[in-house]
Nucleic acid binder design. Sequence first.
DNA 1: ATAAACTTTCAATAATTTTTGAAAGTTTAA
DNA 2: TTAAACTTTCAAAAATTATTGAAAGTTTAT
Lengths: 168, 168
Amino acid sequence: MELAAAKLKFIEAWGKLGSEWGINRTMAQVHALLLISPEALTTEEIMENLSISRGNANMTLRDLMGWGLIEKQHKAGERKEYFFADKDVWNIARQVAKERKKRELEPVLKVLNELSSVTGNEKDPELITFKKSVADINKLAGNVDKTLETMLKAEESWFWGSVLKVFK
Amino acid sequence: MELAAAKLKFIEAWGKLGSEWGINRTMAQVHALLLISPEALTTEEIMENLSISRGNANMTLRDLMGWGLIEKQHKAGERKEYFFADKDVWNIARQVAKERKKRELEPVLKVLNELSSVTGNEKDPELITFKKSVADINKLAGNVDKTLETMLKAEESWFWGSVLKVFK
DNA sequence: ATAAACTTTCAATAATTTTTGAAAGTTTAA
DNA sequence: TTAAACTTTCAAAAATTATTGAAAGTTTAT
């Protein structure tokens, strides 16, 4: 396959994966584009490359910066802003894990903790089932949280080395 | 907190989490409802409880069965179909991991493998960057795949025991 | 100060996803 | 059979989410 076709396919696949995981398709595509660009790109170039509007490009780039996945670059003697993506895939994975943990897992853990103090007739099957489910989910979520915490601090080779060795 | 309020809060939280992870909010809510119900429920009861239409309930229940998260139950001497959710949270996690691996990770791995055979001028920075990104993502995705594979076969206590021991 | 170069905002519009509900389909009991 | 009880389908409507693009805002060079 030619590079041009491969790029399109990569951007499309990355966008699809993103949308399946609750990430705006365009955002995933802009990220994909910057990931495979050796050079930083301007808003203009991104707009053109993906056929998106200026407003869309601007907001998407801002979001990507909010996720810590891309950065602005200023070139000496140029007015334009250039954007580039961190190319280290392990950093990307960690960054996404970090943000989703903060934005989604932690709020859920908070709610689960509140819910575990539910009151009522301790003989009521409704209450028993409710408490059991909440407690079980809480435990699982806690384990996920601990594992992510470790992942965030870890080096890639150490992390996978450890995990895969255990699972041999 | 009272049980009734706690139930509402749980269903709401589960629905929100689902939608953030690309799962239809209603589907997550129906799952939540069944998860905390000691008894199997009819379509009618689910419709009423969540204020959703018959069509929506029917399709959502079918989807949940497709994900292997709930099952039909037939009660002797009754025409109605009852639905109940597997209450084992580890089973649920495994089931979701299994389905998402099959539906999303595997197709992406397939595309990545195709893309790694991209051709062109080996000196071209565009090609070099592209190949590097694809190779790196491929490696990471492969490790995730292997880990999920292990998780699918594992018992909960063994899995977390191993993972958390390593990360101590 | 001015204006060109560039970025940001946001109300309106478009696209996508979800939901409805009535009609069609199926099963069962008598 | 028939008809009641129940389930499924799917086109249309509603709700949600994403995108546009022009106007407003900002920065920089002169």
